[in-house]
C-alpha cells in the first residue's frame, strides 16, 4: 500500500507570553492508504496538535506534510475531522446537523452528497431520527451522527481525536465497532489519537508511539490481528503481548519524563 499521509521533519513551535514551546520535533511518519493508524503518547505531548496540523487548523513551523504526495492545502476537503465530543448543534435537527458541511461549502454535487447522507443514516439506523433534535439521542447514536456529518463530505482521510473518550465503557466498545465498520466499509484512511492502548491495538494497522514534548516518533508498531471488529480483535492471542509492549514504551517515556 502506498503512503497517503507523510510527515517529513515536521517541527511545530507555539508561542506563549512566557516562552516559545517546541511542541513537535523533526516528526517523521507515514500512514498508508485505507489503513487505520493510531497515535499514542504521554499527556500533553502534542497528539491533538498533529491532527490540527493535518486539518490545517494550525500552521507547521517547518517540514512537510504531504497528502497523496502533495503538500496539504488550506480548506482541504480530502480531510475530515471528528472531535472528542460530538459537538452536535442542539438547535438543529439530526438532518440539519448531518448536512452542515454541505450548507457551509455549497458543493456542486450537493444533491448527491445529501443522498449519500441519507443512505448513511439509513444504513446506520439513524434515519428514523432525522427530524429529532440531538438531545433525544443516546451518546453512541450522537457519536455515529457526528461521524456521518464528517463522512458526508466524502473525505479521503479521517482524523479522529479521542472520539470515544466521553462515552461509558460498554457504549465505547459498541461505538468503536460501529465507527470501525463505517470507516472500513467506506474505505477511508483514518488517524486516531487516543490515550487508550487497548482501543489503539484493537482498531489499528499501525501504532505510532510519541515521546514527551517536544514530541518525536519513539516507536512504530505494525499490527495484523485476527478479527473483523475491534471487539473480536481483542481476543487475538497476541493482544496482551502487544499491550505490554506499547505500555512499556509509554511508561519508559513517562519515567524519562519524570527523571
Amino acid at each position: 500500500m502506498s503512503a497517503m499521509l507523510e510527515f517529513k521533519d515536521v517541527n511545530f513551535f507555539y508561542q506563549t507570553k512566557a516562552a516559545e514551546i517546541h511542541a513537535l520535533k523533526d516528526l517523521n511518519f507515514t500512514v498508508e492508504e485505507q489503513s487505520f493508524a493510531s497515535i499514542v503518547g504521554p499527556s500533553g505531548c502534542g497528539k491533538t496538535t498533529i491532527l490540527s496540523l493535518i486539518a490545517g487548523l494550525l500552521k507547521k513551523s517547518s517540514g512537510r506534510i504531504l497528502l497523496n504526495g502533495k503538500e496539504i492545502e488550506e480548506n482541504d476537503w480530502r480531510i475530515g475531522y471528528m472531535f472528542q465530543r460530538d459537538h452536535l448543534f442542539e438547535w438543529r435537527t439530526i438532518w440539519q446537523n448531518v448536512i452542515l458541511g454541505i450548507e457551509l461549502n455549497k458543493p456542486k454535487d450537493a444533491d448527491k452528497k445529501k443522498e449519500f447522507a441519507q443512505q448513511l443514516l439509513k444504513k446506520y439506523d439513524l434515519y428514523d431520527f432525522i427530524s429529532s433534535k440531538p438531545r433525544s439521542l443516546s451518546g453512541g447514536m450522537r457519536q455515529r451522527v457526528a461521524l456521518i456529518r464528517t463522512l458526508v463530505m466524502e473525505p479521503a482521510l479521517l482524523l479522529l481525536d479521542e472520539p470515544f473518550s466521553a462515552l461509558d465503557f460498554q457504549t465505547r466498545l459498541k461505538v468503536c465497532d460501529d465507527v470501525y465498520e463505517i470507516i472500513k466499509s467506506e474505505q477511508k484512511t483514518a488517524v486516531l489519537v487516543t490515550h487508550d492502548i487497548s482501543e489503539a491495538i484493537s482498531m489499528s494497522d499501525k501504532i505510532i508511539v510519541l515521546s514527551s514534548r517536544p514530541a518525536t516518533v519513539k516507536h512504530v508498531q505494525m499490527l495484523n490481528l485476527n478479527g473483523e471488529t475491534p471487539l473480536s480483535r481483542r481476543e487475538d492471542p497476541t493482544f496482551g503481548a502487544l499491550f505490554d509492549l506499547i505500555w512499556k514504551k509509554l511508561t519508559n517515556e513517562k519515567q524519562t519524563q519524570n527523571s
Binding site: L57, H87, F89, L104, M153
Partner: peptide
C-alpha cells in the same frame, strides 16, 4: 461559545461570517 465547536466549524472550512451565523448567534439564543 465552546472553542471546540468553533474549531469544528473551521475544520469544515466555515468562514467567520458562517461561524457567527450558524454557530455563535444560534448558540446565544
Amino acid at each position: 461559545c465552546d472553542a471546540d465547536k468553533i474549531q469544528l466549524m473551521k475544520s469544515m472550512h466555515a468562514n467567520k461570517f458562517q461561524i457567527f451565523w450558524k454557530l455563535i448567534l444560534p448558540n446565544a439564543t
